[in-house]
Simulated assay, not measured.
Amino acid sequence: MNPSDRIDSIDALRGVALLGVLAINLVMEFRVSIFERFLVAARPATSLDRAVETILMLAVDLKAFALFSLLFGVGLAIQFEHLSTCPRRALLLFRRLIVLLTFGLIHLCLIWNGDILTEYAVAGLIVLPFLFGPRWLLAGGAAAFLGVYLAMQVWPPAGLFPSFTSIQRDVQEANQIYATGSFGEVLAFRLREIPLFASLHVYMFPRTLGLFLFGAFVWRSGVLRKPHQVLLFSTGAGCIGLGAFLILPGSSGSVAAMGIGKLASPVGTIALALGYAATILAIANLASGRALLGWAVPLGRMAFTNYLAQSLIFGWIFYGYGLGLFGSIGAAKALVIGLAVYIAQVFFSAWWLGRYRYGPVEWLWRTLMYGTVQPMSLAPLTRSI
């Protein structure tokens, strides 16, 4: 897809969603072990740190990733449509996902084991055949996979989640190795942790599939090409209201009375993600909204590059082979660091795309997908690819 073909509101949404992903990855996974939240004994924290963690857990955690899953499904559908006249469409999309899988495995093993790219690539390969079917198949598949995900919340498969003992042992080792270890020691421990992370991915995988398909369905329905502002704002308000009602602690009594129990949080998370998406898209489609959110468009167009750059930067800041801040600062200070990195990426993305057509990783991904070197210059193309 050429830069001129992109929809700025979707790129703006992706750029804003990247902030949520950054905040959660940084505060809950780079700063401390992701498994620490599952232990009874919590790390001492100031009132400000507790407030930051609470806000992130209620408003951002899993919601940002759900939003990214929706956007990935939209992106798949856009690519599928863009290649509609190409006889190699299936092969190119398959190659695109295999390249993503390769990037994901490199990121997972060598840079950071909190990687989401590997899961997205595998999910994309499963979703790809659905794109060749009618719109009802996308909707039906989304409902089926989301149904499986919700069923797993009520009846979790036995033995899927790591034991308390294994989590406790992992957190103890992480506090020592990530904080003081050399690159080799951190790498070895990161690889040993992968089976624990894999269990979390398996638990969330049906949701990823469902949201991919729902994102593709939304694109196929046409509501993002010719957005209806009243529909977007009303959907945003309704979904945010429902999500907040299901997730906020103060509504637990009402939720219990409704009899949905364990489904409140996962349903509320999906509702909030949909609400955030609809609201941001509605704002981004207004003239004043374009001015307000214009800074996020270049960031969203380079989301792949920025995501990987965040892993490299935060790994150096928090692990022993860099500054070694793992486990030594609170959530509030970590978030300040994250915001500084994010702001720097906003300026860098705008600077880069003022000179080149694609982000560096996006360019490499596209080049490997097509098998030919893609143009980087902003000069007009003489032909479409």
Rank of each mutant, 00 (worst) to 15 (best):
G141Q: 02
H228Y: 01
F145R: 06
I177V: 14
F197A: 13
F205Y: 14
Y149S: 09
L128M: 04
R190C: 02
V154Y: 05
F214W: 14
V230E: 01
S221H: 14
S182Q: 00
V223A: 08
L131N: 06
P129E: 00
V171S: 05
V230A: 08
P195F: 07
S234F: 01
Y178C: 06
L128V: 03
K226Y: 02
A188W: 02
W155D: 05
W155I: 12
R225H: 07
A144M: 11
R192L: 06
Q229T: 09
S166T: 15
L224A: 09
G147Y: 04
T165K: 00
L224G: 03
Q168K: 10
G147S: 15
F197W: 11
P162G: 14
L211I: 04
S199N: 11
S166Y: 05
R169L: 02
W219Q: 11
L146D: 14
E173H: 05
P156D: 07
F205I: 05
A143W: 09
R225I: 15
W155N: 08
P129D: 00
M152T: 15
T180W: 04
G140A: 03
M152D: 13
F217S: 01
G184H: 13
L146Q: 13
G184R: 14
G222H: 10
Q172S: 04
F161W: 11
N175K: 10
E173M: 10
R207F: 13
L211F: 11
L191M: 13
V171R: 01
R220W: 14
P227R: 08
E193M: 04
Q168S: 08
Q176H: 13
P157F: 03
Q229H: 02
T180M: 05
A151D: 10
F217Q: 00
G159A: 07
L200F: 15
L191P: 05
H201Y: 10
L128Q: 02
L200S: 15
L209P: 09
R220C: 09
S182D: 00
V230F: 07
